[in-house]
């Protein structure tokens, strides 16, 4: 969808602010949220991104990175029936009233070990070929000019643009929420800066994107 998350090429954001020696997590809750999302075993873990992308622009821009995660993951947990709105409300009231007591702990060293192993487990992304790839390295290609209502990985700035295939990555899962085949050839495509940004392009630069075959005319 053409949401606020699709930021590539937008102007007016100003200088990039950097911290020196910043911590991995700035606040304790960020780390615990991140770890819960990584380690909680759910039948359907869900995908945070479509939920984040549907946030209203003002809310998106004013939420920190992990606040967006919190928003999206809470929605997923409720939608998938893991938690109910009522449980959330009741527990929130109880914990808000009790400022001192630490949360009850449950230890499961076996689960902790497994979670750490899973973080490091190789996860092959290659899928069996489902078709003959339509393009080869060196081919000139044209991206489609589309505006799908759901999640897509083709940013606005690269739609309806010409590029050249520089790598073939084999067959990968297709992440968009449309009806196209779920496994597709994936290519790296080079777009000259001039093709993307016209007269205002900087000299001698190019942008490379990973392009599923369905994104190409």
């Amino acid at each position: 969808m053409d949401g606020i998350h699709d930021l590539g090429g937008m102007q007016s954001f100003g200088p990039i602010r950097r911290e020196v020696g910043e911590p991995v997590f700035h606040e304790e809750w960020e780390g615990r949220l991140y770890a819960m999302r990584m380690a909680t075993r759910l039948q359907n873990p869900g995908n945070l991104r479509p939920h984040i992308e549907r946030m209203a622009p003002g809310q998106y821009l004013n939420s920190s990175y992990y606040e967006k995660w919190l928003h999206a993951w809470t929605q997923i947990l409720v939608q998938n029936g893991v938690l109910t709105e009522e449980e959330l409300r009741d527990r929130e009231a109880a914990l808000a009233a009790d400022t001192g007591t630490p949360l009850p702990r449950r230890e499961d060293p076996h689960q902790a070990r497994q979670a750490l192993e899973r973080l490091r487990q190789p996860q092959p992304l290659q899928r069996a070929a489902t078709s003959q790839p339509r393009f080869r390295v060196g081919d000139l290609v044209q991206t489609r000019h589309f505006h799908p209502p759901g999640h897509t990985r083709l940013p606005r700035y690269a739609r309806g643009r010409q590029g050249a295939v520089v790598k073939f990555y084999g067959f990968h899962d297709y992440p968009d929420e449309d009806a196209a085949p779920r496994v597709q050839p994936l290519y790296a495509v080079r777009f000259a800066a001039r093709e993307l940004w016209g007269e205002s392009a900087e000299l001698d630069s190019a942008v490379y994107l990973d392009i599923w075959e369905n994104y190409l005319e």
Partner: peptide, 24 residues
């Protein structure tokens, strides 16, 4: 809100406290 999620998910046995600690 994060404390709410942690307390409910731990209570339901979907994740353990030491697992969260270890991943952090």
């Amino acid at each position: 809100r994060t404390r709410v999620l942690e307390s409910l998910l731990v209570e339901k046995g979907l994740v353990s406290t030491d697992t969260i600690d270890a991943v952090v």
